[in-house]
Amino acid sequence: MLDTLLSGQLLFAAAVLGALYALIGLGLNLVYGTMRLLNIAHGDFLMLGAYGAFWWFTLTGISPLIALPLIAAGGAGIGLALYALVFRKQLATGLAPAVIEARSLLLFFGVSVVIQNVTALLFSATPRAYRHLDTVYQIGQTAMTGNRIASLLVALAILGGVLVFLNRTLFGLEIKALIQHREAARIVGINVSRVQIVAIALGFGSAAIAGGLLSMTEQVTPFMGFRFTIAAFVVIIMGGLGNILGGIVAGFLLAVIEIYAVTLFSAEARSILIYGAFVAILLISPQGLLGRARR
């Protein structure tokens, strides 16, 4: 039993899932942190990315990894369109953050229902899948498929890239400043709406990429996003809302818990566990376990 638990196989699975969780958590965190928008449609952007990758591969036969920039641009584009049509005016009204949070939750719920059902209408609710890079590589005791390795590497590369961008570039620092001190950021002359646009593009784009990666290993359906919305919320609440690094750590933590629970108990335990963690964390510490970015 102990051998199974310490096996590279489980750790590898946890790493692949953790990188995806960290990636979607990162996107949600950016959008929430800079705008206080509670995007409960986040997982639906992942779903759109997954469909993008599926159709790209089915129609062109070229690896979806090549199409990731395109998929990211698509996600970012839809996000920006939503921002322009729905959220920009709401954000400019000077409403209290609490009101913006409450309204954005309802608005994104509407957006989620529309996205899911438009997708179902266009592509039907039939699950889709494709085979790509499914060669198995044996490294020591651990068997890894090519697509999982690729998914892990790409997700890590993007996480690293975004971290460098946030910590090393002036623009990234502006985003972080806005997350931490909204009013102060405005006063020191940060162009808030420009930062918001970049945060939207990064946030929604990274969700779409996560979907593209996921589509190589999981079935694609119009309603698949929901589970990931919840996971993303668990991740950012666990890591502290607006706390980027905390969220990445929490993403890997959640994946480890999930993979081990499924192995130890059963696949059905997964939902109970994710929602259980979600409820427990909110009850114990609504500000997050790993740190407080606000106040």
Partner: peptide, 22 residues
């Protein structure tokens, strides 16, 4: 549950409902 305010309350009730369901 009611110690939690605002949007966190909303997502908490939702998470709790799903937890009960599963």
């Amino acid at each position: 549950v009611l110690r939690i305010r605002g949007p966190y309350f909303v997502i908490l009730t939702f998470g709790l409902a799903e937890l009960v369901k599963f």
